[in-house]
Amino acid sequence: MSVVEKLGNVDRRIIFLLIALAVIIPLVFNISFMEHPSPIVQTIFDKIESLPNGSKILLPFDYGPSTAPELEPMATAVTRHCCKKNHKMYIMALWPTGQAQALRVIEDVIEEEFPEKVYGTDYVHLGYKAGGYGLINTILADLKKMYTTDAEGTHIDEIGMMSDVQNLRDFAFICNFSAGFPGLKEWVQFAGDPGDIPVAGGTTAVSAPLLYPYYPRQMLGLMGGLKGAAEYEAALVHGYPEYEKVYQRAIAIMGPQAIAHLVIIIFIIIGNITFFIEKKRAKKSD
């Protein structure tokens, strides 16, 4: 068998081994690359950057622990950015598991990195409410009807930053992190479209292709999977150089992913070259 034929019909196990190595080696040696935000991610960064300080931003956390590896880095980066810009953050969840995920980000980012932020003035955690897209529909007209207390049971009227929030239209921007239904699609359909509120967000890479139809008319921007998160982190580092030294989780994990990706690309190229050579040979021998 010639080299070409061998390459054309390479044993799957060799591919498996190379993929495993492509993941393990960069993990062990901490290899990572600098990302460059694509326009669809950059628009989200620019939106948060261009809003006047102290704007109201709604951050719904619609994911659970299984998709947290993909979505938490984006939530972290966006929350960080909002803190830097002194925006008022309103955190909520349409998923029962989202509340705990939101708490993690509040503890790790807001409380840890920005201890000067005051609960009730700079950020509020409204917690989980059942109802899915029906809830979005309701709070588009009247938020306080559904949210009479925050996640900890404090009455909404006792929270300073809630006094001038009547419904979703009072928010300057909605940035959602979602792993499925209800999620970004529903935020676009039931809040963004009818309420004319800028909506953007992040999703898992698998559901991102199904959301592209909404960009850019109905959805301001989209972070798809870890790649989207890494791009946002890159935008943040670019805008706030003090983050250059800080560990950026998505960028770090993107290292092994990028290498595995490259391996696959190389495989596809080899596969096609051998395919063409074989085809030519077959023609000659005819």
């Binding site: 591919i15 498996f16 495993a20 993941v23 696959i264 596969g271 096609n272």
Partner: peptide
């Protein structure tokens, strides 16, 4: 992760 690679290798050929 492994199967996506082997499928890509096999299927992405200009046949």
């Amino acid at each position: 992760a492994f199967f996506v690679a082997s499928a890509a290798y096999r299927a992405f050929r200009a046949k």
